[in-house]
Design a binder for these strands. Sequence first.
DNA 1: CGTTAGCCCTGCTGGC
DNA 2: TGCCAGCAGGGCTAAC
Length: 244
Amino acid sequence: MTAPAAASSFKRQLVGRTVIELSRRGKYLRFELDNGSTLVIHLRMTGRLTAADHPIRKDLKKYLRLLLCFEDETCIAFNDARRFGKTFILKASEAEEYWEKMGPEPLDRSFNAARLKKILGKRNRPIKSFLLDQHMVAGIGNIYADEALYRARIHPTCPAYELSDDEIERLVGSIKTTLRSAIAHKGSSIDTYRDSEGKRGKFQDTFSVHRREGEPCPACGHIIEKIKAGGRGTYFCPACQKCD
DNA sequence: CGTTAGCCCTGCTGGC
DNA sequence: TGCCAGCAGGGCTAAC
């Protein structure tokens, strides 16, 4: 379950098991086990998974939260300085209910304008806040919401239900291209994010608006502004991004 | 039901 | 130079 299990109970549920499949749903990483249960890891902002040999390197002992070691003596270290990341085990009987309450995967074929329009419905909340809600669409974080809205030329505080068909079409496209580009650049290492080999991503070098307050918009030169939307720092170009 | 504020957590940044 | 308040944010819960 989502409640943090005691370490001993956690260990008992994992020791001797075999990982039979790796997958992802939204921002959750899933390690499916041979007894039908699933080890789930969410990195949040500062969590890091690193491939390591046993015994693990000294630097990986700092902020170590979970260490998975396999029969061939390879390990996966989960480190998280801020302890915001989460690990939990889902029983087979709990899994379906847990995942189905999340919104669609934005990179799925089935995520198209018609689908998004249906979810937007009559919801009266800022589109930025909507995009961050994992029950609406899964997997979009603060960086990608800002960048996708910029590419779609939509103002972050625009009410969700007010988006025109053309804006919805643009937003679906911009979400997909933003996420695909971020993946191609191996993620965003603004802060502590590193891949499983400790390498930095490069997507942050391509940001158009995120964390660029006071800098010129790459398209029109207007100064990028920062506001608070959906409780998060939100960056946008006031000239390019409007509500139709 | 839909929406939002507040909370968790701690390393880092900016201001003095 | 050193200190420290406040920022950063994903997801859950409480509250409206």
